[in-house]
Simulated scan of single mutants.
Amino acid sequence: MPSIHRRNFFVGGAYAGPPGSRVMHGQMHVEMLTPDLVTHRYPLVLICGKAQTATGWMTTPDGRQGWAEWFAEHGWRVCVVDQPARGRSAWQPEWNGAVKPLPVPLVENLFTAPEDGGSYPQAQLHTRWPGGKHKGHAGDPVFDQFYASQVASLDNPESERLMQAAGAALLDEIGPAILLTHSQGGLFGWLMADARPGKVMAIMAVEPGGPPYQDDLYKSGADRISGLTTEPLTYDPPVSVASPLQFEQQAEPDAPELARCWLQKGTPRRLVNLANVPVLVLTAEASYHAMFDHCTARYLSQAGVSVQFIRLQDVGITGNGHMLMLEENSLDIAAFLDAWLSGHMTEE
């Protein structure tokens, strides 16, 4: 096994407050893993979703190898980040706002045991969460380890503002990189690419936050008035108060088990800073995202982005839910992502 060298550092952040009581807020902790033999030109930046920290990339709750070390062993420099105001990145309540935890029933129903009570059609296909007789539920040792890792976190749009700034600072520090995002972290991938054109070489969006514009299913917060995000993205023609984006929803879904997609109304504007970024949107068979991730891919395509949408079951990987990087076959999915990059990136 190759040796892996670790470097821990912070990017971004600013001092605030009156003289004598200033604090720093908005900074982001980064852990970089560098193997002895680096075989890929660009580093990978792994960005987690809501309530998660970098620990979810480092190991699984039942003690198996996580994606960060797996990718490092396969020749990648890997950066795992704790979003500002989360994990090893300090939360300053006066400047960052309130944080909220995810309650146990929500975690069980959406992340670990949807087959036992999930409210979406694909839930019964879920088989891959590790554990014993009561797997996926409080009281099972694997679930308890997972839930112990959950942290209270900020809602959007505050998290988007902080993460776009910190993510841009990270790209300024490490240079061009590939983003591997998950869930809420998917929002930050679009914002980072928009803030630093030419420094994001590809985005692998694993079940990215969505669907575009409005969540009619779970009513998950503020409308994404920029389509993919709440915070502004760069469109051509430009968006303004006098000329906002307009959206329209499908009259009927593509299939009964799918959501109706929101798209731009009329002649679509282009996401110019994402136009040259290869994008993968990857969705698991048994996740609640299986209902709507195709809408994110469709929105990207309509806005001029080169995007490939793949459902894991179509490449022979079945039974996964939303926390697929922690499930029994997690390294099979990592290997698929590694192969996708090999087919879509040049190393010159």
Results as ranks from 00 to 15, higher is better:
G343D: 13
K50A: 13
Q27P: 06
N96S: 12
P18I: 08
I4P: 04
T39A: 05
G186Q: 07
G118A: 09
A259G: 10
A202K: 02
P93S: 05
H137L: 12
E108D: 07
L217E: 13
T181E: 03
A242N: 12
V99P: 08
F10M: 13
P19W: 10
G132V: 03
G17P: 09
P43T: 04
D155V: 04
M32S: 12
P35A: 02
M24E: 15
Y299C: 11
L312P: 03
D62P: 04
Q249A: 06
Y218N: 09
A123S: 10
A98D: 14
P157A: 00
F188L: 13
F309K: 07
R298V: 05
D36L: 09
R269G: 07
L44A: 06
R41Y: 00
T229H: 04
L125Y: 11
P253E: 01
H134P: 02
R260Q: 04
S342G: 15
P212K: 07
V23P: 02
P232N: 08
H182R: 08
Q302G: 11
R22A: 15
Q92K: 14
Q308H: 12
L191K: 09
K50D: 09
D332F: 03
L171N: 02
K199G: 08
N156W: 12
P114E: 10
L326N: 12
L102N: 13
A334D: 06
A286E: 01
D144E: 10
E31S: 14
M345N: 00
H29P: 00
T34C: 00
K199A: 14
K50F: 14
S342C: 10
D140K: 08
R224H: 07
Q308T: 15
V45C: 02
A275W: 01
E94F: 12
W91A: 07
M1K: 14
S226F: 09
A303G: 10
T59W: 12
V78K: 00
L326W: 13
L37K: 15
K133Y: 13
R311P: 06
A255Y: 05
T230W: 14
E252F: 06
K135D: 10
Y299T: 09
C79P: 02
R128V: 07
Q249H: 05
A14E: 15
A113T: 07
P211I: 01
L280C: 01
V23G: 01
A193P: 06
W67R: 07
F336H: 12
A166K: 11
P105R: 11
C79Y: 00
P256Y: 00
L171D: 01
R224M: 02
Q27H: 14
V80M: 01
M28S: 00
N109K: 15
A242S: 14
T60E: 10
G12N: 06
R311L: 11
F292T: 04
Q52F: 14
F146Y: 15
L271T: 06
M58G: 04
Q164I: 03
A169Q: 12
P268E: 03
M24F: 12
V80I: 15
G13D: 00
Q249V: 07
L154E: 00
G210A: 06
W57Q: 01
T229L: 05
E285G: 05
M325C: 12
N156P: 11
G75P: 01
S153M: 13
A72V: 03
C295G: 06
